[in-house]
Each structure stands twice: as C-alpha cells, then as structure tokens.
C-alpha cells in the first residue's frame, strides 16, 4: 500500500513557513542625536517597512487572496498591529527581558522607559513570557500569525462566510499540527489560542499610544503607517 497522502492541512503550515518574510533591520539614523524622538522615529520607520512586508505575506496565506479586495483590506486594517507585535514577541523569545524590535534594535526596560514605551514593554513582555512557558515553535507562531489576521473581528467584512472558511482552515491546520506533534498535550492548540486576547489587548494599547504620538506631531511618520493607524481609530 502507498503511504497515506499528507493531509492538505499540514501543507498549510509548511506553506506558511515558506511564506515567512526575510528579516528587516531598523537601521537607526547615525547622524541623529540619541533621543526619545529618534527612537520613536526609528520604530515608526521600521513599522512602515514591515507593513509593506506584512501585506505581501498576507497574500501568501492560502485562501486570503480569494477574498474580495475590500475584505483583504479590512482584515489587514484590523490585525496589522497584532501581526507586528507577534513578530516582535517571537524574535524576543531567546532574550531575557528585552524586546527585539529588529535584530539591530533591541530595547530593555530602561530604554523603553526613556522612550515612553514602558507600558507597551510590560505588555509585550507578558506575551513573551507566555510563549516562553509554552516553548512555542516556529510552525505554531506562523500559524497563529495567520489566525490573528483571519480572526481580526473587523466590523466591515462583506463576505462573512468566506472569512469564516479561512478561519476554519487555519484553525484546523493548528489543531492538526498539534495532534501530530504534541500528542503529550491535547490542550496545546487551545492554550495557544488563549494567548490571542492578550495580543489583541496589547495591540490596542500600541495603536492608541502611536496615535497619540501622531497627534503630538513631533515624530515623522510614513504614509502607509499613518494610513493604517488612521484606519484603526
């Protein structure tokens, strides 16, 4: 007998692994004197470039591109900060009490305090600790990122059934992965999904914080970042 064919659901996880974007760097401007404004400018510029990458990545999620353009926009407008934060969290896993915004931009508690990002630092670190405890793997992280996008609870979805179909496919991919790879913990998929409320809460805080920075007008922000920030409030 031929070996049983690999389930297409496992294929989703391997596909998401391949679709993972290349690292991008913060590259702080060396000619600018160190200040909170410089740190925030660096982070907003990094976020703007990461957004371009996230939009390209989303198109590689199986099923995403079959949604209407309007629904693709709505999901991204709701979930982009969750996706950004989840990536920071995953990069920070090998570190101790530091947030890896980029490989060349790591912030500790003191740096976060000086930049006015202490609240955000504390929240993101709470997420890091949860995933450290779970020893989350790259396969799980890429699937969770896609789930965060599909499950972003946008109020503007036109074709709810198609978005539900995408959520179901990704949810099933996670469950399928866990039932093959983590037979020792039948509740692992649930544990991972239960981290999403804290991710949503943290992203909401981050959006509010960066929106108030935008209103103060001291930090230059690129157009895509501004566009996405405005879509959230």
């Amino acid at each position: 007998l031929p070996p049983p064919a690999k389930k297409p659901l496992t294929k989703i996880v391997s596909h998401l692994l391949v679709a993972e974007p290349e690292k991008i760097y913060a590259m702080p401007d060396p000619s600018m004197p160190e200040s909170d404004i410089k740190a925030l400018t660096t982070l907003c510029d990094l976020a703007d470039r990461e957004l371009v990458v996230i939009i390209g990545w989303a198109k590689h999620i199986p099923g995403f591109s079959s949604l209407s353009l309007g629904d693709q926009m709505s999901l991204l407008q709701s979930a982009w900060m969750e996706i950004l934060i989840l990536s920071i969290v995953f990069r920070s896993l090998p570190y101790e009490d530091e947030l890896v915004y980029a490989e060349d931009y790591v912030m500790d508690e003191e740096h976060s305090r000086l930049t006015g990002l202490l609240d955000l630092y504390v929240s993101i670190l709470q997420l890091v600790r949860k995933y450290k405890k779970l020893k989350v793997e790259k396969e799980e992280f890429v699937t969770l990122k896609a789930i965060a996008l599909a499950n972003s609870d946008s109020m503007h979805i036109e074709d709810v059934e198609s978005v539900q179909k995408l959520q179901d496919a990704l949810h099933e991919a996670l469950q399928d992965y866990e039932s093959c790879q983590h037979t020792e913990d039948p509740r692992r998929a649930g544990k991972l999904l239960m981290t999403l409320p804290l991710l949503r809460q943290t992203a909401t805080k981050a959006i509010q914080h960066f929106y108030s920075i935008k209103m103060q007008g001291k930090v230059p922000m690129h157009k895509l970042f501004l566009e996405m920030l405005e879509a959230k409030v």
Partner: peptide, 20 residues
C-alpha cells in the same frame, strides 16, 4: 478605498497568491 490608497495599491500588485 480612496482613504486607504497605499494598502489598496499594495494588495492589487499580485504576487502568486495561493488558494485553498
């Protein structure tokens, strides 16, 4: 959509989307 021009444009530039 007019308000979200860049997102709209980036999504329209297709790059081998995958369907279920």
């Amino acid at each position: 959509k007019e308000k979200h021009k860049i997102l709209h444009r980036l999504l329209q530039n297709s790059s081998s989307p995958v369907d279920l």
